[in-house]
């Protein structure tokens, strides 16, 4: 099955570690890959999903491009893809 890398930053890095991989069936959406990942992590579902929906505070990148939660439903992953998750930023 395709292997998808999930990279986490800030609070999510502390919770899940910086780099993880998840195996998903061919054609799984970004959202589906995140759901599969969340289920492998302690507190993953609580941290990333609310009522079955991706938390509105989560910022997503797919292969280094920002995407929104609607995109996450329609983009289909392939082997070697990278999904990045991070909370709101606070630089400056």
């Amino acid at each position: 099955m395709p292997q998808i890398t999930i990279r986490s930053f800030a609070r999510f890095r502390q919770l899940f570690g910086e780099m993880n991989t998840v195996s998903v069936p061919e054609g799984t959406s970004v959202l589906g890959a995140l759901l599969a990942f969340a289920k492998t992590q302690k507190d993953g579902m609580d941290e990333l999903f609310a009522g079955g929906k991706l938390g509105s505070h989560i910022i997503l990148m797919y292969n280094r491009e920002r995407i929104d939660s609607d995109d996450a439903k329609t983009i289909h992953t392939a082997d070697g893809d990278e999904i990045v998750i991070y909370p709101p930023v606070s630089g400056g």
Partner: peptide, 22 residues
């Protein structure tokens, strides 16, 4: 920069990690 750029700040006290700044 504060709105967009992926940079985060976390408060530290000694070796203890505190809150993420938002």
């Amino acid at each position: 920069l504060k709105e967009k750029v992926p940079i985060w700040k976390q408060e530290l006290s000694g070796n203890a990690r505190g809150e993420w700044v938002h």
